[in-house]
């Protein structure tokens, strides 16, 4: 079971350059054609589940628009 993660894209910075889309190893990012940023670009968004929170999109993002989160691993609850 892969780690579950997600990204948040800041509309103020995203310019829709698509570099995160080409870099994503699990191919879960696409441009959101239903929205425009204040500067008139279609921002990036998560298109489906499967994000592992690896952060590669944030490494290549030229505008540091992406914040990456990861769900913590479930701690073992003692059975006794």
């Amino acid at each position: 079971m892969p780690v579950k993660g997600w990204i948040e894209v800041n509309d103020l910075y995203c310019k829709g350059c698509e570099l995160c889309i080409t870099a994503c190893p699990v191919d879960v990012i696409q441009l959101d054609y239903s929205r425009l940023t204040p500067k008139g670009y279609h921002p990036a968004m998560l298109k489906s589940d499967g994000c592992t929170g690896c952060g590669i999109c944030a490494v290549i993002c030229p505008d540091a628009a992406i914040t990456v989160y990861r769900e913590p691993k479930k701690a073992k609850v003692p059975t006794a």
Partner: peptide, 11 residues
């Protein structure tokens, strides 16, 4: 038990 999401990367 921590349930807060881990922030992997931020600006």
């Amino acid at each position: 038990l921590t349930t807060d999401p881990i922030q992997v990367y931020k600006r």
